[in-house]
Write a protein that binds this DNA or RNA. Sequence first.
RNA 1: GCCCGGAUGGCGGAAUUGGUAGACGCGCUGGACUCAAAAUCCAGUGUCCCUUAAAGACGUGCGGGUUCGAUUCCCGCUCUGGGCACCA
Length: 910
Amino acid sequence: MDYDFRAIEQRWQKWWADNKVYKTVEDPSKPKYYVLDMFPYPSGAGLHVGHPLGYIASDIYARYKRLKGFNVLHPMGYDAFGLPAEQYAIQTGQHPEKTTAANVARYRSQLDRIGFSFDWDRSFRTCDPDYYKWTQWAFLKMFGSWYDPQQDKARPIEELIHRFETEGYDGVTPEEWKSASEKEKSDILMRYRIAYQGETSVNWCEGLGTVLANDEVKDGLSVRGGFPVEQKKMTQWQLRVSAYAGRLLESLERLDWTDSLKEMQRNWIGRSEGTEMVFDTVCGDVHKPITIFTTRADTVFGVTFMVLAPESDLVDELTTPDRKEAVEAYVKEVRRKTERERISETRSVTGVFSGSYGINPLTGEKIPIWISEYVLAGYGTGAIMAVPAHDSRDYAFAKKFGLPIIPLIEGADVSEHSFDAKEGKMINSGFLNGMDVKDAIEAAKDYVEAHGLGRRKTNYRLRDAIFSRQRYWGEPFPIYYKDGIPTPVDEKDLPLELPEISSFKSQGGEAPLSRAKDWTYKGWPLETSTMPGFAGSSAYYLRYMDPHNDEALVSEKADAYWRNVDLYVGGTEHATGHLIYSRFWNKFLYDLGYVCEDEPFRKLINQGMIQGRSSFVYRIVGTNTFVSYGLKDKYETTEIHVDISLVRADRLDLDGFRAWRPEFHDAEFVLENGEYICGWAVEKMSKSMYNVVNPDDICDNYGADTLRLYEMFLGPVEQSKPWDTKGIDGVNRFLRKFWRLFYDRDKFLVDDSVPSPASLKSLHKLIGKEQEDIENFSYNTTISAFMIALGELSDQKCTSRQILEPLVVLLSPFAPHIAEELWHALGHEGSVVDASFPEYVASYTVEDSVTYPVSFNGKTRFTVDMPKAASPAEVEAAVRAMEQTAKYVGGQSIVKVIVVPGRIVNVVLK
RNA sequence: GCCCGGAUGGCGGAAUUGGUAGACGCGCUGGACUCAAAAUCCAGUGUCCCUUAAAGACGUGCGGGUUCGAUUCCCGCUCUGGGCACCA
């Protein structure tokens, strides 16, 4: 019997499913371990070979932990709401639910073939009403909460209302509160709610009738449809993520994530410590104090102008009548530009003088106030003091508009560039003169606070998340408008299910839900926008803990057992999206006591991308003749992607190519050595580049175990690498050899013989290595160790059950199908997943060596380790070499030296 | 522009973190088995010098440095992947 992977894989996949081998239940007698993959968006294209990389890595870890005695939670589901399904629906009229279901089914069958140990009983899709009920529930909780800065956590909004009623809060007195109308009260509370409605600047696309994300806009036009997009202030639902900025930053320290990912989040959160300073201003005869934010309070003496953001409310107040026309034209022009245009025109300097002046609080000097788009309304106070000598942006602006530049640091040459570095001695700066910049910053902050000119302030770049989308295929908001006041739907009425609509097309710029029949609640109109993609993925890991619970997102008991995700595996592209929102969402639920851990993902591994290897043919311009790679430089050619299924070892299948597409039907070829050689390049794996490799094909030709092994053998999980089928034979060969350790044709070779010391050594070397490597996610080296052990055991003709049985267990995380087959062949009834990881005995692996004493300065202080087989001459040479080294090192601290003849190999110092 | 990371044979990648560089696999070369092919097995495979071997020299992107000893640590570059991009 040969290694028949097709039969083996089919048999055990069915057996696992029938017996629910991977079903997980809470078991307080065992330690828990939660291994999670970032769940996929089920696109119409299906899985390619790159998708399972992370799933295989996490599956190996989950299986390993199980062998180690942990109760492992390892679920999988689908992130199923989103734009592609809806766009497809608009084009075809097919309901997104239908295409999503089809895509999910396809994904499921592809995943099943790879032999993952997912507990499918816990699976769900984010578009299932049973699930999005809890997304809506969380939103209601956020709507019903505010962020209490004193306790530094979210609290029920009732506590805030109580404060308004009794002692007053944040400038609102009890009297004002009591006399306020319902609408006014609602407006006041909106300023505090965690989920709130507020005006913000968005990419608005009139043609599509929706707000768009930055990546959906290109050159001022919508990517889909090509409609113009403008910056518009709109009232949108938002999540007060910014309230959590400090905590999101701090607890990053405690997470076992890669430094680069933490760094990305740190940059995204963007903490900066500075000072808010008040400048008096004069607009005509009117005085008005305005507040600016700066991190360089030490440079106040060099302020030569001030700048307001065009969107700032201060612009109207500080524009003098004679400048009104120019300012309005400028603001209008800026508003017309998209975010993208502003970014792409990053080097052009624009601005307009407001007509007003500010008063430098330290020098009393009068300085002009300008308006420019380089100041952002959303950060700080939307107004800055400009110090052109020491800020490159202010410098560029000053140069363009001829404003004065005063250097403040000794020796700084500001004739060509600003001097931005925070180093040097202060000059031209009054009481700061002579100080080092770093000291001057602190001194200036102290001075400003002491004289009541401002206060220290920490700002964050992290913005609140815009939470509304004018789309259909997302979670409906559980909000209705009672007399125009946003009011939460009763919790008992959740889920608020997505209504049927007749057409998914946008009409007249209205949100699709506005056309739904009876989209009302208690007779009042319901919110018509839906939630964005990240809503459903923000708490899904909690739901897996208790997926069928009707009473709660997760029961207290299940949450207390599973706590949080121990190992999370996914792509780095979610660094500043999902991974921020999820942490925010979790912290919010933690504040209200719904979950027991304040961080959702303890350890995070970012798997690399598997890129495609594209192949090219070269068509001679103006002909239908194709020239082989080596000869293409002799002609003028066009490079054309060719489907990689038509290419083997860079050689083109000519007949296949002619049959591939009609226009190549009568193609002619210029060959080299009788063959057509294709060119190649490493690119992203995608349909349009004809370089997609489907895991199903690999499973058909080599089997799932080979696929799993190969993807891991390719290199470190974190690293991106091109898919190259060339090496796959190597791991396939390994599995076939592994099989032959157990079977010689039909004869089962395993017996109860006593294992040789050499076999024990081979086995335990492998156990030690595998243990260590898996903990470090170094799977490729584990597989190497396996190949070495296999070679040794075959040479030893090992047939002992005492060796081969543990060997099967060791292989099972990597190649579960063949392991399960052999496990049963060894006479076991249950699954190999219930086996135990073999105990590592280090003494079996010690090398046979002899230790020779060596004297130095008359004392025996050192030893030399030599292989038993070493000849006296070799030992002699080693001892002499060691004495030499001892002299170099001074003899004092050497403990041991390992030497090969004439050469020092290992000096152990103490 | 700013912030991270990487660079090792023909290829993917190892190297106990300062101690025999190139494990393991692929590919290639030669051999065995075979009528033949596939499969399998055995041997060789960093570069240079050399008929060969021994021996030697060189060798981890480039240039310096520290050390008895550097792929590993320090300084200065080059190339490359990724992230951020007017955040005052």
